[in-house]
């Protein structure tokens, strides 16, 4: 497949410095740019948007980091830069996002509302490439997964580069993920792989370590949903429709390792497996346990001492269902 976007970016004189060779974006690929503040994520996105450093870039729909509301109503702000069709679409997206009163003065909108208007506006644009800089930064925590899901659906069929430093947002919005440090992309790969296997300590420090299991939503029990990823059934919080594809995510620090044969009580997510790998991660240990699917756990050296952590040892791993996030969609 031909990439929709491919370029070399080198401009040491500007701050922050960004140096990326052979940046590619495949057709319909959703790439998350992940990294700490000042790593050059927004700068790279600005380059891709053609705002700075006049590179040869395709026309893109661009959502700046701090969407600005101009004088006038929310509706007028929604319409900026859109065709008549785009305006109709923008209203539909805004309605999805819960923005209904477009007659309000844009300046009086809350940060979250303004961001929703900006998101609807940028998603309604017609460009093949969509560039989003921290699209969920101003959205309330409890609404983030929902808004992220809507963005994901509206990006269907289009390529996108999304800047974020939130793991959940990255897992929902991205297929692939590029980690930036000091103006360079230090690791790029499928989101789950990057989270599970950071190439070095620096990346691990930035992304944390997370498990992302992709499968189908199977069963609903109250506010819990199960996802079947291969042979593994994972329960978590979420509202993915059963039968549809879904992802379950949990951080490596939420994983508990117990001696083989331990009774795990009420924990729904407990699986028996063998230790495959143990690595030092700063003061912590990263342990990969194969339970039919590699699960990454972060444990303290003290916890490791109490157990036999040598590769091949049988253990039980357990994760509380409330620590797992389930999100529907591809």
């Amino acid at each position: 497949m031909n990439p929709v976007l491919e370029l070399d970016i080198r401009f040491p004189p500007s701050e922050p410095r960004v140096e990326v060779d052979g940046f590619r974006l495949a057709e319909a690929e959703k790439l998350v740019l992940f990294g700490p503040n000042g790593a050059g994520k927004s700068t790279l996105l600005r380059v891709l948007a053609g705002i700075i450093h006049e590179a040869e870039v395709p026309a893109a729909a661009y959502l700046p980091q701090a969407p600005w509301m101009f004088r006038g109503t929310a509706g007028q702000n929604l319409d900026f830069g859109l065709s008549a069709d785009g305006r109709v679409l923008a209203r539909a997206v805004a309605a999805d996002l819960g923005v209904n009163d477009l007659g309000l003065r844009a300046r009086q909108l809350s940060g979250g509302e303004a961001q929703r208007v900006a998101i609807a506006r940028v998603l309604a644009r017609g460009e093949e490439v969509v560039l989003l800089d921290e699209p969920l930064a101003a959205v309330d925590l409890r609404d983030r997964a929902e808004v992220a899901g809507i963005i994901r659906r509206r990006l269907d069929g289009r390529a996108a580069v999304i800047v974020t430093h939130d793991r959940d947002d990255a897992a929902i919005l991205g297929d692939a993920m590029a980690v930036m440090l000091d103006g360079r992309i230090v690791q790029r790969g499928p989101v789950a792989d990057v989270f599970a296997q950071p190439v070095d300590e620096a990346v691990a420090d930035v992304v944390g370590v997370a498990n992302v299991l992709v499968g189908d939503a199977a069963e609903v029990d109250g506010s819990l949903v199960s996802v079947d990823a291969g042979d593994l059934r994972v329960w978590g919080l979420g509202d993915a429709p059963t039968g549809g594809s879904a992802r379950a995510m949990f951080g490596g620090e939420t994983v508990t390792i117990l001696p083989a044969g331990s009774a795990v009580g009420s924990a729904r997510n407990s699986w028996t497996g063998r230790i495959r790998d143990v690595r030092r991660l700063g003061r912590l240990l990263e342990v990969v346990i194969d339970v039919g699917h590699p699960i990454v756990a972060i444990v303290t050296p003290g916890a490791a001492d109490a157990l036999d952590m040598s590769p091949g040892a049988e253990v039980v791993v357990s994760v509380k269902a409330t620590a797992v996030r389930v999100v529907g969609g591809d």
Partner: peptide, 14 residues
């Protein structure tokens, strides 16, 4: 104009 406003203006591609 604040930088954010200028950048948003550029993003509109008017």
């Amino acid at each position: 104009l604040p930088l954010a406003a200028k950048e948003q203006l550029a993003a509109f591609q008017l």
